[in-house]
Amino acid sequence: MRKTIFAILLGFSGAGFAGGGMLQNECSTCHNITGPAAQTLKEAFEKKGPDLFYAGNKYRQEWLVSWLQKPQRIRPAGMYYGNHIKAGAKGDEVDVSTLNEHVALSKADATSVAAELMRLKPHDDLTAKEKIGAGAISKQMGEMAFNKFLGCMACHLIEPEYGGLSGPEVYTAAKRLQPEYMASYIRSPQAWDPKSWMPNKHLSDINIQKMVNYLKVLSEETENAK
């Protein structure tokens, strides 16, 4: 009996997965690991997790290794927010009972999956176009642009309890994402995902740099606040 419970626990934590092939087997049940991105809204509405077929262009490897062992929610309203909202007294609310937790992996499996993911780089062409300068921006000025001038906060949390809910939170964005990816996605979300919920706000090069620098400052502050 004890052995059975142990085996179930191992399976649940992900520690029971074999190293190789996990991406193709377990991960691919919720993530698109081969591409292309969804070409229709019908496909997009059914997504259970973010596309991983360009993970090597998107994520920081060290973050992947850490997050896969201790996953924390990045999208407060899930992958397609419409599948996870309910009518509330003051408007739509996130129905947390419909959200699923991401499985936690062992250190060995997280390391192996992260290494596999980093090899998926079909969009080198897009990231190569971005040049990230060493510019700096204060948190205050960055927030003013992100919120008031550009309106990004409408959909993104900039603190755990402050901001919009339909997009991924951005207070850890720079910790998890490569700067060139952030710049490229802000420049044209549709170049990565034609059905992205995020609009192209036609930001100038200067504003793109400002936002990437702001996200860096924001992530550093979030890290320091821990």
Partner: peptide, 12 residues
């Protein structure tokens, strides 16, 4: 969802 302006993002 009902088009009345009360989307999931409006809190802040």
């Amino acid at each position: 969802g009902d088009g009345k302006g009360g989307g999931v993002n409006i809190r802040d």
